[in-house]
Amino acid sequence: MSLATYRFEVPGDDFTRAGEASGSLKRSLKKIGFDPDIIRRVSIAMYEAEINMVIHANGGVIDVEVSPQKIDIWFRDKGPGIPDIDLAMQEGYSTAPDNVRSLGFGAGMGLPNIKKYTDEMKIDTEIGVGTTVYISVYAK
């Protein structure tokens, strides 16, 4: 089975560059020729998770594995961790600071949207250590 793997370092100090990793993956997925709907779902979920890493965790690392069957993505950060995952998953709940809200982020739809657009989603988090969000979108 052939596999393409990608790693993206997401800088935490430059908010203006958030969203670049998902844009870059989108270009590759288009070239590979995935169904447009699959690409759209991956792009949106990845964009949301990437933005989350920048807003809440001072950046991190994204690992992507692309196979003909599915696209798996791991978002690993060394941020503060999520104290209450159920609360964080609620639509409209947000802890984003005011400075990013003024850019239109922080509507509390990040995690709910990631769940909505993916086939699998798992959050591993430890307070003070960091968070890993795993998502998978099935290609077939």
């Binding site: 052939s2 596999l3 393409a4 590759s28 288009k30 070239k31 590979i32 020729g33 995935f34 692309v66 196979s67 003909p68 290609a139």
Partner: peptide
């Protein structure tokens, strides 16, 4: 823009 009509082949090419 597509590399190949076959997903498996396209992935190998992308690699």
């Amino acid at each position: 823009m597509k590399l190949s009509d076959d997903l498996e082949t396209a992935l190998q090419m992308m690699n």
